[in-house]
Structure formats: C-alpha cells, structure tokens
Amino acid sequence: MEKRELEACINEYGKDIYSFCRHLACHRQEAEDLYQDTFLKAVELEGKIDFEGNPKSWLLSVALRLWKNRKRKYAWRRRIADICPIIEDKDLENAASLEQEPSCEERILGMEERLAVASAVGRLPERLKAVVLLYYMEEQSTKQISEIMGIPVGTVLSRLHKARKILKRELESELYGKGI
C-alpha cells in the first residue's frame, strides 16, 4: 500500500476503526496502539488486501486479530486495576464537542446515554462484545461478522441474541427511564 492509499484509508475508515479499538481496549493508550498497529499491519500485509472488496471489514478483522494476540499482554495491567475505565474525562469532552450543536439538555442526555451503553457493552464477555461492536457500531452484516471473526453465521446470531438479552437487562433504566 502506498502512502496516499494509506492516507485515504485512514480518512475513510479511521473513525470507525478507532471507535472499535477504543471499545475493545480498556485504556486509551491500548486503543491507540491497537489502532496504529492495525494500519501498520495493513501496510505490511499488502497484497492480501482486497481493497476493491470491503476494506473496512478487512481492517476490522485485522484489528480484532491483533487484539486477540495482545490481550494477554494487557492482562497484567488489569490485575492491577481491574476496573476498566471505558470512559475517561477526555472522552466526555470529545463526546460533548462532537454533538452537533444540540441544546444543552440534549447534549447531557446524549452523553449519559453513550456512557451507560458503553459501560454495559464493556462489561460483556469478550466474544459477545466483539459481535455487538461489529453489528451496532460498525454496521457489519451478520455474514460479514462471520467472516471477520471466522465463526459460522449461526454462532453470530446466537451471540447477538445472548448479548441483546444481557444488554436489555443492563440498560433497562435507559430504555424505560427516559421513555424511549
């Protein structure tokens, strides 16, 4: 991949991939490393990429594979701080600034909602979390997810179902409390 191709890739998919990394990894630093390595790996794996096809799915699968490989590396950190700070102050600022000029009240509501959902998703077991992120965040079809994760479509569906059940319970107050 040449530099300008890489640049195009980053412009096009950077946000999506970063968001995926950010929710997979617990810490910002881990997420940034993962994000960076995903693109570097993409450069390295040049030739195996079908950019005509679906680069986003492919980049997601690279990110997921890298993440699986390094989870162990981060495991020791978790032992020290077993609470995952999914949302940091900086995220809150960013989230706030990214809302497109909504009213103050709406902004706060939106932030609270994002926080609640992110932490509920963050608490899901790893295998369910990846499916949820790929489906809802990255808008991948169940078939694409099955290719990215290397599992049958049926398994994707059953994991999605299981994750939904857990999330519904966890997010009850979000669903009813605000009368969505």
């Binding site: 946000k15 968001s19 994002r114 959902v117």
Partner: peptide, 12 residues
Amino acid sequence: LLRRALAPAEGP
C-alpha cells in the same frame, strides 16, 4: 438505542 449510542463519535 445501541445503534445511536455506539455510533462512532470520536475519531483518533
């Protein structure tokens, strides 16, 4: 809810 709340908001 999930789609809205998980939509990629923050870029790198």
